[in-house]
Design a protein around this nucleic acid. Sequence first.
DNA 1: ATGGTTGGCATCCAA
Length: 257
Amino acid sequence: MKIATLNVNSIRMRLDAVLEWLAVHEPDVLALQETKCADDKFPRFEFEEMGWNVEIYGQKSYNGVALVSRHSILGVRRGFEDPRFPEDCRLIEASVGGVTVVNTYVPNGTVVGSDKFDYKLRWMERLRALFASRHRPDEPIVWVGDMNVAPTPDDVWDSRRHLGKVGHHPDEFARLAALVDWGFEDVFRRFHQGPGHYTFWDYVIPRSFENNLGWRIDHVYATAPLAVRATSCTIDRTLRQGEKPSDHTAVVAEFDV
DNA sequence: ATGGTTGGCATCCAA
């Protein structure tokens, strides 16, 4: 089973690139983040006419996640389903081919110490509680998405410059570690070590992609029964090279299931 | 020390 994740930064801007990528790579599941449109504006028909099933959870302007598959997408759940908290569209879960896929767009956090940073930490804590309440770590679960955290010094182009800033802060490391400790393995790091393997290059930094000034913030995590069956995990930089690219590119993992 | 870009939508917010 091949599972991919991509922060598209607007599905309407990236529709042609995504459909072409799907045709070439034929993943069993593609998880999208930052679709940036309400559900009635999502180009659902364009996917369906190419033979892809789509499950979406979107809102106007911001956030938005989706799952794309050739297979039936079963048991879809959207968000935390917790009326105590206002919901934004950052989480969608479903079962595809016997594997539970959880797709998240973790809040960016904006600036350390801000309300949005606090929201990010709380959001990650709520996600940990969601896994504990809905699932067990001996189930085959793959958790993918834009986690907005570069968890080790090798995961950002200048760790000393960014340590303590948003995306590379000890409070974020702790929240991510709590999620991983529940029962996940970082599938990419099963296959690749060291610095320079990035999935996001900031538009704001001139020639960030050409100079590989990036971050590894898009991750594929799997529970043990799936992780031991992983056969590859790669970053496909081609999507970041084209005309009008997203600022992220795709991560693709394959499992012998 | 600081700025640089992009997308959606409304003339700014979020990233």
